[in-house]
Write a protein that binds this DNA or RNA. Structure first.
Lengths: 235, 235
DNA sequence: CAGTTGGGATGACAGTTGTTCACTGACACC
DNA sequence: GGTGTCAGTGAACAACTGTCATCCCAACTG
C-alpha cells in the first residue's frame, strides 16, 4: 500500500512538464519503460538544476536542495550523476546543444556583410530569449568555482572558435591572412559574441526597448571589428 | 594563563604577513592600538578570504571556514562585516583600488598608437602578475552568484569605461564621433581588456613563453580594433 | 586612578549538508 | 512464469553551517 502511493507521488513530481520534452529522444521505437523512466528523472534533475541555478552558482547548489526540488530521495541522485560537477558538465552540453542549432542557421546563409552582422545579433538575442536559463548558467560558470565545468565550457567555446575560424578562412576577405591572424580574429569575435549575449541577459525580460538598444550597440561594435578586419592588410 | 596563550595564538595568526601591509593605512599618527588591532583583523579576514577564494567562489565560502583560517572566533566575523557578500564588496573595492593605480600610469602618458597598445597590454600583464588573486576574484564573481558583489563589480567597470570614454573623446582621432559611438568603443575596449586579463590569468605562473604569446595575440586584437576605429567615419 | 567601552572568545543552538547502506518492488528477459 | 536487474527509498552517519547570548579583559576616557 505504501509503495503505490510513494510511486505515484514520485511519478507526479518527476513527470510534470517533461513527458513531451523527452519523447523525441526516445523515438517511436519501444525503448523500454524502464530506461525511459530513468531518462525522465535524469532530465528532471537537469531541469530542476537549471531552475535553481538561475539565482545561484553551481558550487553553492546542494545535492539535497536539488533532489528535494525534483521529489527524489537524496541517494537517487547518484544513480544519474557522480557528483554536482558531473551534473554541471551535462548542463554545459545541453546548453551548447541548443546553441549549435541556431549557429548552423547563420553558418549556412551567405549574405552581404551588414546582413550577416544583423543576423548574428538577432540570433544571439533569440538564443538568450529562448534559452535564458541555459545561457545564464554558462555565463556564471565560465569562470566560476567548479573546474570540470569551467573546462567543459572552455572546450565548447574553443570548438566554436575553430569552426568560426574555418568559416572566416573560406571568405574572400581573408585572402593573404595568416592562420594565426584568422584565429585571433575568430577569438575576438567569439569573446564579443559572448559579451553581447551577457548584455542581453541582464535586460531582456519583456523590455523590447532596451533590448533593441543593446542590439544597436552590438551591431556597431561588430561593424567596427569588421572594419578593422577589412583594413588589416593595408600597411 | 589560558587567556595569554589564546591571545598570543591569535596575535600570531592574525599578524603574520600583515603588519607591513596596513602600516601605510594607519599612518604615522598614533591611531590607538585598539582600532589598529581592529583594522588588522579586518585586513586579515580580507587576506584570508582572498586566499581561500583562489580555488572556490564566494557563494561557497563558509563563514567558519574563513574565521578558522584567520584564527578568529566565528562570531568575530560580524564585528567587521554584516555577511559574506559584504566582505565580497570590500574585496571588490580593494581589487579595483590596486588596478586604478596602474591605469593612471597609462592615462598620463601620451604616445603614438602602437606604443599605447603595447603599454596597455604590458600594464594588464603586470597587474595580473602582481595581483593575481585579486583579479581571479573579480573574474569569478563578475557574473557569479552573489548579487551585491556582481553589482559592485559592474559599477567599477562602468566607472572605468566612462573614464576611458572621456580620454578617447579628448583624442584628435575622435573628431566627428558621436558620444554614443565613443561610449560603444570604450565598452568594446573595456570588455576586451578584461578578456585579455583573464587570458593572462590562466597561464601566467612562471611561463614567460605563453605569456608573451597571449600578449602578442592581445596586441593584434587591440590593433585591429584601433584600425576599425580609424576607418569608422570613412563611409 | 577608576569606569566605561568594545574587540574578541566561548559554548551551545537548531539545522543543514554529502554520503553510505540494506532494502524493495516493478520492469526486462529467458 | 520465474528470475535477476536496478531505479528509487528511507534511515542513519558524522561533520558542518550561521547565529546568538554571554562573558572576559585590554584599551581608552575622564
Amino acid at each position: 500500500m505504501f509503495t503505490d502511493t510513494s510511486t505515484l507521488a514520485w511519478r507526479k513530481s518527476a513527470n510534470d512538464c517533461l513527458l513531451d520534452d523527452v519523447s523525441h529522444i526516445l523515438g517511436d521505437r519501444p525503448l523500454g519503460a524502464r530506461q525511459a523512466q530513468k531518462l525522465r528523472t535524469r532530465q528532471a534533475l537537469l531541469d530542476a538544476g537549471l531552475r535553481l541555478l538561475e539565482h545561484q552558482s553551481l558550487s553553492s547548489l546542494g545535492l539535497r536542495e536539488l533532489t528535494r526540488e525534483v521529489g527524489v530521495a537524496p541517494a537517487g541522485f547518484y544513480r544519474h550523476f557522480r557528483d554536482m560537477s558531473d551534473l554541471g558538465v551535462a548542463l554545459v552540453e545541453e546548453s551548447f546543444g541548443s546553441l549549435r542549432e541556431m549557429v548552423r542557421a547563420i553558418r549556412g546563409e551567405q549574405a552581404k556583410a551588414d546582413e550577416v552582422i544583423d543576423g548574428t545579433v538577432e540570433v544571439i538575442a533569440r538564443y538568450v530569449r529562448e534559452h535564458r536559463p541555459h545561457f545564464r548558467f554558462i555565463a556564471r560558470e565560465r569562470y566560476g568555482g567548479v573546474q570540470p565545468v569551467r573546462e567543459a565550457i572552455a572546450d565548447e567555446l574553443r570548438l566554436f572558435a575553430e569552426e568560426l575560424a574555418s568559416d572566416l578562412a573560406a571568405q574572400p576577405e581573408s585572402e593573404g591572412w595568416s592562420p594565426q591572424d584568422i584565429r585571433m580574429l575568430a577569438d575576438l569575435y567569439v569573446d564579443h559574441m559572448v559579451m553581447i549575449a551577457i548584455a542581453f541577459l541582464d535586460v531582456s525580460p519583456e523590455d523590447p526597448g532596451s533590448e533593441e538598444e543593446i542590439a544597436n550597440i552590438a551591431r556597431r561594435q561588430l561593424r567596427l571589428i569588421r572594419l578593422g578586419r577589412s583594413h588589416w592588410l593595408d600597411d
